[in-house]
Amino acid sequence: MTIVTLDPTTGFGSGEEFPLALRPETLKGQVLGVVANGLGDSEAMFDAIASALTDADGLAGVCKVVKHSVAVPPQPEQWAELLANATVAVTGFGGCGSCSTRSMRDALDLEAAGIPAVCVVHSALEPAVRAMDRLVGADEYPVIVIDYPHNPTAVWTKDESAMLAARVLDAVRLRLTR
């Protein structure tokens, strides 16, 4: 006797290719959007990244928003501010389960809005953000990975935050330009 059952899942992935925003040639004159989720001490790292890119690459400005919770989208007014001002963006820090995937989604949403973006995550959460890639059809979307011995949940010292910023700077520059 044949038994038929119904599938309880929703599918994974839209099946459509995800278009990335067009990158500028350099960061000179660009406005860097920073979508910080406030996890641990990660905001200090993003501040250091913004400061270093301003000095070294000639950013025209920085538009930073700190989300109201680690794993939610930016508030509507924050999103409007980003769309109005940012021309490139960095999101994160993806150091916990829900905040990493949400930060990845923030980056993908910015890409969909035409703003080149990159998400900074911890290696422990890379599989999670890859799941988010697949969900929207952006397989292998480039991310910047911070590894151990640095704490995934961004419990970092000031010096560590500064050192991590310096370490990822070239990768941020590379991901946001063509």
Binding site: I3, T5, L6
Partner: peptide, 22 residues
């Protein structure tokens, strides 16, 4: 609208849900 899965017996259907990962 959901996809369907066919099994030869109740036991297969029971075990099949594990194989489907659901």
């Amino acid at each position: 609208v959901s996809d369907t899965h066919s099994f030869d017996s109740f036991e297969d259907a029971l075990e099949g849900q594990f194989e489907l990962g659901v």
